[in-house]
Every structure is written in structure tokens, then in C-alpha cells.
Computed example of a mutant assay.
Amino acid sequence: MSYYIIKLIITTLLIVLISEISKRSSFIGAILASAPLVSVLAMMWLYIDTRDALKITALSNSIFWLVLASLPLFLVLPLLLKAGVNFYLSMAMSISLTVLCYWLMVTVLDHFGVKL
């Protein structure tokens, strides 16, 4: 049980740290947020839990393909905000587009025999 609490604390602290740093410097916050810290943590926790390198390989490959599908969020959100669209509506529209892109990516990859 304490292992799960440690995982939660470390992962939560990382997210809070990035948001606090972003208040002071959006550039440094962006560097930290764009670094695959969450993915690295997930791979570390998975490896510690399973000691299975094949699971890490599968996770890493899936992350690669799905990161591509998440990129439109970072293009559309600032465009909507600059156009004066309400933050929450902009976020909802950007997330909806990202969900659609995930679905398209999974569908296209499945068509070409790539299993995530």
C-alpha cells in the first residue's frame, strides 16, 4: 500500500511543480510539460511492477503513435483563445478534436496492421 502512495505522491508532485513553475515562466513550464516525464514515470512504475521489458516496449510504441494524435490540441487551443473563444469552450473543443484524432490514429494504424 505504501508503494502506491509513494507513486501517487511523486506523480502528483510532478504535475503541481510544473503548474507552479509555469506561473513564473511559461518557457520553463513548457520545457518540463513537453518532456515525456509522465511517460518515463509510467514506464518506470510499469517496469518496477512487472520487470517485463516487452510491456515497456509496447507502451513506448503506443505512446509514440498517440503523441502524434495529441498534437492538434496544442495548435487549436491557442488559435481559439486568440480568436476570443471562452477558455473552457476552447479547451472542450480542443479536447474533442484530440479524441477524434486519437480515434483516427487508432483506426488508421489498425488498418495497416499496427496494434497498440
Rank of each mutant, 00 (worst) to 15 (best):
V40E: 01
S26W: 11
I18A: 02
C101F: 13
K7P: 05
S39M: 12
P78E: 02
M43Y: 13
S62N: 13
F112S: 14
K115S: 13
N61E: 13
L37D: 06
A35D: 11
S26F: 12
T12S: 13
A35C: 14
T98L: 01
F27Y: 06
A35R: 06
Y47L: 14
L14H: 00
L13H: 05
A92F: 03
A42D: 15
P72Y: 05
M1S: 04
L81T: 12
L80S: 06
M93R: 10
K23G: 10
M1H: 05
L54S: 14
F112G: 07
L73Q: 00
L66D: 10
L17E: 04
A33E: 03
A83H: 12
V76Q: 10
L73S: 01
L54D: 10
S26Y: 08
A35I: 15
W45D: 15
R51Y: 13
V16T: 12
I31F: 01
A30D: 11
V76L: 13
M91W: 08
I56E: 13
M93I: 15
L80V: 09
Y47N: 10
S19W: 12
V85N: 00
L13Y: 03
M1P: 02
L104T: 13
T107C: 01
L81Y: 09
I95K: 02
K55T: 02
M91P: 06
L89C: 04
V38T: 14
L8K: 09
